[in-house]
Design a protein around this nucleic acid. Structure first.
Length: 319
DNA sequence: GCGTCCAGGTCTACC
DNA sequence: GGTAGACCTGGACGC
């Protein structure tokens, strides 16, 4: 447990449209920074490592989708130097996608027969992202070759057992462990502790690679060309095409066996007979159709399956 | 009960 | 360069 008693408050004014509720709490239940964060009556308490410091984060909307404004409070162990503090604030604003302009995507979406419905249903929803590579990479590994139920069990175990707990503002939030913590654990011990199976080897190797070598940070990956960022991500153990598309800060079109059903129906009118074999073709069609906005399109579709099913007259589901 | 199959991919050996 | 097979584990399914 790490007591974070130093509080710094500031205000964030996102680029409109920005829906606080849809962005912070995705309809499909995707968390902001950790699956164990707390959301209650329009306020979220979450935590993450930002610029190497465990940071408690409290956010509350003070505006509307058209005139968005957020009250933000950071909780830290000690008050950092001004330069570092400003870096943490900038990073949080970027992670919350408050600096993201949706205008170009919405222009494309309104001319697209699938997306035009989703952008109405989810007006003002943005794509948030973590500041570090490990949480998304670890999640991607835990999603491989198993059920969603077991993925969640493995993820919660990893966080509760090896992650720190941020204690601030009367809340206790467990966060993703740092790779340097996981790198010290032998793969068989990791497998036994959290029932990771063969994924433990990937997890241990991933943590070691991220700590022992000068691997680019998320910020540095974002400065690279999208293809180059993906090429670097594919160097990570246990990270293949699908996982790299989840992690890539430039976005990708991460089609797995389940989303192949959804996008197969949307693009070609039917679910593929062989999901794995169909992935490549579905991915190609998504990238052709939506280009650099493929990730945003993917996000809007998977977050809007229920309403899209009704509007398009087809059953779309992810499980 | 018990055996078999397969799941929100990736890696490796083999051709 | 392409591809089959292995990989932990546990729930679903058929018998």
């Amino acid at each position: 447990m790490v007591k974070l008693s130093k509080e710094i408050t500031f205000e964030i004014e996102p680029i409109p449209p920005y829906s606080f509720e849809l962005t912070i709490r995705k309809p499909a239940g995707w968390p902001l920074f950790t699956p164990l964060e707390i959301y209650d009556k329009g306020i979220i308490w979450t935590a993450a490592h930002i610029h190497g410091l465990l940071t408690g984060i409290k956010l509350e909307s003070r505006g509307t989708t058209e005139q968005p404004k957020m009250a933000a409070a950071l909780f830290l162990k000690n008050v950092p130097k001004q330069e570092l503090l400003e870096g943490i604030m900038r990073c949080l604003i970027h992670d919350l996608a408050a600096d993201e302009d949706l205008a170009e995507f919405y222009e494309l979406a309104r001319r697209d027969c699938i997306l035009r419905h989703a952008v109405v249903d989810l007006y003002g929803m943005h794509s948030t992202s973590p500041s570090t590579i490990f949480p998304d990479a670890a999640l991607a590994i835990l999603l491989q070759m198993t059920t969603l139920k077991r993925s969640n069990e493995m993820m919660n175990c990893l966080i509760r057992r090896y992650g720190e707990v941020a204690d601030f503002d009367g809340k206790k939030i467990p966060v993703w462990p740092l790779p340097k913590r996981i790198a010290k654990i032998e793969a068989p011990d990791l497998a036994k502790a959290c029932n990771l199976g063969y994924r433990a080897r990937h997890m241990a190797n991933l943590a070691q690679k991220l700590t022992s070598e000068a691997f680019p940070s998320m910020e540095e990956l974002e400065r690279l060309e999208p293809e180059e960022a993906k090429r670097r991500l594919l160097e990570l153990p246990g990270i293949g095409d699908y996982s790299a598309d989840i992690i890539n800060p430039h976005g990708g079109f991460p089609i797995d066996a389940w989303s192949a059903d959804v996008f197969g129906r949307l693009f070609f009118g039917e679910e593929p007979k062989d999901r794995r074999k169909a992935i490549e073709g579905i991915k190609r069609e998504g990238l052709r159709r939506w280009g650099k906005w493929s990730w945003m399109a993917f996000l809007y579709v998977v977050q809007d399956l229920e309403k899209l099913s009704m509007k398009l007259g087809m059953e779309l589901r992810l499980e």
